[in-house]
Amino acid sequence: MAEPRAGFWQRLQQIPRYYVYLLMAAVVIWQILFPIPLPIAPSSATQGVYDAISAVPDDKLILISTDWDASTNAETGPQTEAIVHACLQNDKRFAIMNLHPPMGVKLANDIAEQVAEQYGAEYGVDWCNWGYKYGFANVLIAMAKNIPKTIGDDFYGTPVAELSMMQGVEDIESIGLVIEITGLATITETWIGLIQGVYGTPFASAYTAVMAPGYYPFLDSGQMQGMLVGAKGAAEMEALVTRPAKASVIMNVQSWAHVLIILLIVIGNLGFVLARGPRGQGAP
């Protein structure tokens, strides 16, 4: 005997996942091609990163640890770009380095080169790239005592001690702010446990949205000056540096994608409640 045909409300709970994917793709493409802009208001966490950058004394460097790779590029790439803009707009010298994964140092280098060109900033004078340094905690412990000896050569193979911006840079006291950009857990704990918590070096961060909730206690306790949360944080930073770019587009599209998700959740739950009937008959 044939199965009785599912009612309308039951079918609402069983929308094939392909339709959900297609709907999502359609909304994303629609908003990329014909955007309906929504306002972006910087949060206090994002403002904290910007303020920490602008408060760095002129005789100190900002160290940007770009510990991300291609898999999180959509979030961490725009974060890196917006942070580099903030550094150069505030006339702060910065160095890029990478603990893991190594792909981040190349991707961040490309971003820094492009942004530096817009400001006429020169490699070795206004910014430099210390390269990928393997060893996590060992690198940080050694770097705190002697930066040129620990880092050795930069990304291009030049000894960092020969770069003009590195003259006078000796140990962790020469660093005015560490900014950690990552999609990996535990690297922050290494920075805070070995550098911020020991030497009091100001620390700020930029995380993928997945991992950010776990790091709010660090923000609340004052261990972090600020935090960029995913593409949202990057878009907010783009608003602060008045350079709306990729993340602003992502967040606009994202808002409409979230509207779709909320609608689908409401429809699914409505179907669930109404399919049960007034006394719960017809519940699956």
Binding site: I32, A74, E75, A209, G230, K246, V249, I250, Q254, A257
Partner: peptide, 22 residues
Amino acid sequence: AMFGNTVMARISLFIGRVQFLL
């Protein structure tokens, strides 16, 4: 809240790829 952030992160990655494709 964590799951909401996870959804946001995954959609961001998808949007990043669609940006590249388009």
